[in-house]
Write a protein that binds this DNA or RNA. Structure first.
Lengths: 258, 258
DNA sequence: TTTCTATTCTGTAATATTTACGCAATTATT
DNA sequence: AATAATTGCGTAAATATTACAGAATAGAAA
C-alpha cells in the first residue's frame, strides 16, 4: 500500500473492508549468525519503534490473515507461525497516545472517531524466520525497520513490550513441546547449527553431546551420509528432520528437557 | 438482563456500549463428585446448546470482561480463569446459521446488519469451579442450562465443539505446568480428594503413592496435623497448598509428569 | 470390649532418564 | 608429514520415574 489514494481510502474506509477493534501483532523472530532478533518497524505518526501488524479482512479467516500480513511484510509464506495471546487489558492507553501524533501527519483526512483510533485488541502471533532470507517491505505507514537483538529491545509503542516478552516466553515454552527449527534451518543442517539455535533461543548452554543424543533418540532428526564443507577443519555431517516423527511430535507435543 | 426494554436496547444499541466483532466464550469446567463437567446454556433463537459467553464493554479491560461475564453467570468471583485461544477461522459459518433462528424470535427489531449478526471472533477462556457452589443465572437470552459431562458433549453452536476440545487440551496441559486445584478444592483437602481431581481432569489413573510423593516433593502441598471425619472408616489427614511454593510454581511453570 | 471392614497411609526395588564429562577422529592448512 | 581447529562419540554417576503390597487406623458391628 503506497499510492496516496490507496492510503487515504484505507484510513477513511478501512472499517468497511477490515474488522475494526481487532489487530494482529506479530513478533517475528529472526535467527542469523547465532543471534535471535525481532523485527521492529518505524510507524509513521509515532516516534518510537513498534511491531509489525495489520488488520483482518471482514471475511478472512484469522489464521489466513496472520499469514497474509506476514507475507506482505517478509515475502515468506512457509514459516512457523503461532498465535499466543490476546492483549486487551490497557484499553485507555492503547490508542490515545498515537492519535495526536498520527493526526499531525495525516491532518484533515482523519476525524476523531476514525476507526484507526478506536480501541483495538491485539492478537499476538509469533513467527520464526531466517532473517537473511527475508525481504522486508516497508510501505506508506512504515518508513523504516531493523532487526533488534531480543536482549536489547527498546521502549515500544502501546503495550508492545509486554507482547514481546510474552512471545519470548511462549517461544521458549514451545521449544520444549514442539520441534521448532524446521523453519529456522536449511533443509539439511549440522549438529552444531541446530545446537546453537537451541542455545540461542533458550539463552543458555546445552551440553552438545546430550543434546544431539536427545534429538536422535526422539527420532526428530536423522543423520545423512553427506557432509558439508564450511571452512577450515570443518566438515560436519548433515542431518535432516524426520518428517514423519516431526509431524507426530507437532500434534502430540513433546514433553522433555534438554 | 431481563427487562424487555433492556434487551431491546441491547440488541439495537449494544454496539455503542460493547466492542462489536469480538466475544468471549468460556468453557467453565465444573468438578463435583469426581466428575468433570462443563456448563452449557440454551440460547434463545438457537436450537442447540452453546457455551456461556458475552461481550466486552467498550472501555473495559479484556481480563476484567472475562471475569465479569463469569461472575454474572455463576456469581463466583474468585476462580481460576485463563485465556487459551482466539477462534476466528470460520468467518462464514459463525453467524449465518444463527441469524435466521434469531430473527424468527426477535422479529422486526433486528435488521440484517444488526451488530449481533456480524462476524465475531471468539476469545476462549477456561475456568475451573466447584459446580456445587455455583449459582447459575439465566437471563433473557438463555432459558436453560445444564452441566454436561466432558465425555458426552453434544453438537454445539457455531464452532464451539472445537473450542471445548481445545479447552480440555489446554487444561490438561496446564495441569502439568501449573498447580491447578487451588480453586477446585476446599482450602484444606485430603490426598484422596486431590488425587481423584487430577485423575478426573487427566482422564487416566495415577498411582496414588507416586502422586502424593510428587506433590510433596515439589513442595506444593503440606500436611496438616488435622484430620477430617467424612464417614465410616475414613479420617484422612488434611493437606493445604503451600502458598509460597505455589505462587512460585505459578510464575515459573512446573515441568513434570505424574 | 472385641472383631471386622473399609479406607488411608507408607516404603523399596527396578527401570528409565538425565546429567556430567574428555578424548579420539577428521579435515584443511601449513 | 605435522599441526590446529572442529566434529563426533561413550560411559559412569546421579536423579527421577515407575511399579507394586501390606500395615495401620477408625468406625461399625457383634
Amino acid at each position: 500500500m503506497n499510492a496516496q489514494e490507496e492510503v487515504i481510502d484505507f484510513v477513511i474506509n478501512g472499517h468497511k473492508d477490515y474488522l475494526p477493534h481487532v489487530s494482529i501483532d506479530s513478533v517475528i523472530f529472526g535467527y542469523h549468525h547465532q543471534q535471535l532478533k525481532i523485527l521492529l518497524l518505524k510507524w509513521i505518526g509515532h516516534s518510537g519503534w513498534g511491531l509489525p501488524g495489520g488488520f483482518i479482512k471482514s471475511r478472512e479467516p484469522l489464521t489466513e490473515a496472520a499469514y497474509r500480513i506476514l507475507k506482505e511484510r517478509t515475502r515468506l509464506s512457509d514459516l512457523f507461525l503461532q498465535q499466543f495471546h490476546v492483549f486487551g487489558d490497557s484499553p485507555y492507553r492503547v490508542r490515545e497516545r498515537s492519535q495526536a501524533e498520527f493526526r499531525e501527519k495525516f491532518g484533515p483526512i482523519t476525524s476523531e472517531d476514525n476507526w484507526l483510533f478506536q480501541r483495538t485488541l491485539s492478537i499476538g502471533y509469533f513467527a520464526l524466520v531466517d532473517y537473511s532470507k527475508v525481504d522486508i517491505t516497508t510501505d506508506f505507514f512504515t518508513d523504516d525497520f531493523y532487526w533488534c537483538d531480543v536482549n536489547e529491545v527498546p521502549f515500544l509503542l502501546f503495550d508492545q513490550n509486554e507482547v514481546v516478552e510474552m512471545a519470548l516466553k511462549m517461544l521458549r515454552l514451545a521449544i520444549y513441546h514442539q520441534p521448532i527449527g524446521y523453519n529456522l534451518l536449511p533443509e539439511k543442517f549440522t549438529i552444531p547449527e541446530i545446537h546453537s539455535l537451541y542455545q540461542t533461543i533458550l539463552g543458555k548452554e546445552l551440553d552438545q553431546r546430550n543434546f544431539s543424543k536427545k534429538l536422535l533418540t526422539l527420532g526428530l532428526i536423522k543423520k545423512l551420509d553427506e557432509r558439508r564443507n564450511i571452512g577450515p577443519h570443518r566438515s560436519p555431517y548433515l542431518y535432516q528432520f524426520d518428517k514423519a516423527n516431526y509431524e507426530e511430535a507437532l500434534n502430540q507435543g513433546i514433553v522433555h528437557t534438554y
